[in-house]
Design a binder for these strands. Sequence first.
DNA 1: GCTGAAACGAGACATGC
DNA 2: GCATGTCTCGTTTCAGC
Lengths: 150, 150
Amino acid sequence: MDHIDRVLLAQLQQDATQSYAALGQAAGLSAGAAHERVRKLRERGVIRRTTIEVDPAAVGSAVLAYVLVDSTSWMGDSADAFAALSEVLEAHIIAGSASVLVKVRTATTEQLQDVLRRIYAIDGVSGTQATVVLETFFERPLSPQAADQT
Amino acid sequence: MDHIDRVLLAQLQQDATQSYAALGQAAGLSAGAAHERVRKLRERGVIRRTTIEVDPAAVGSAVLAYVLVDSTSWMGDSADAFAALSEVLEAHIIAGSASVLVKVRTATTEQLQDVLRRIYAIDGVSGTQATVVLETFFERPLSPQAADQT
DNA sequence: GCTGAAACGAGACATGC
DNA sequence: GCATGTCTCGTTTCAGC
């Protein structure tokens, strides 16, 4: 994980369709060397996968909400229960009053209500506090150059 | 945005490196037709970009936190101020007591504290409530088949 | 571990349906 | 709007440094 790797990661985040020749040029490498570096980054799991960013509104998911989930028991083994809800995009165990924080996208507020109902049905869940997003300023990937000490 | 487009989007989200031949096969199309569909999805902005998913821990961002930002004035024009902080990955205006919700990744809790300090320095911000994530169950992209009415 | 070149496979495009 | 075929370009691999 040197500076060159960081440049490669930043470049690929911006545009993963660019050629290894262009990638190498940005990092000061030949196409072959760039390819080898990227292959190793994938192998080591630094690059988890190559994917596309989809416009949520275009696929009918205009409503974004964060939900604090209160519970009466330890929620450490409930990952699968949340993962089973396709509208739940993230689920985290948090430090604080509520025990789980989830990010949810739905087409309508009615559907959001339905998701909350299904979250409530999960074992140990005693309550939910939903916070609806009115406007998203931005959502962006982690920038590798933000952290420079690994 | 028919069923075929949804299959293409779901396939590309899982693996954007697969060939158009494989993509077409999954959707019941030829490689050329699949290519044309994807080109139009990009053109229309449904596909925003092709990117990579990076392991946050591997680039030295092990700490994840959500921060509720309280304010004394309208925060609708403060998008740039939050975007200037590279550790801030998302910023949303929310309905509720606090006015802005941001997602932050840093290497250490000390760095998180520094980000909070810089958020506090933004015009109109009167307070912050940070919630630190202890364990992430999962983070995944929006599944196009979750919404079927566009 | 990088460079440069050579073989292979995929992407882009035109034609016809 | 999709299928087929051709040409071009990028990816991938390997010898050499």
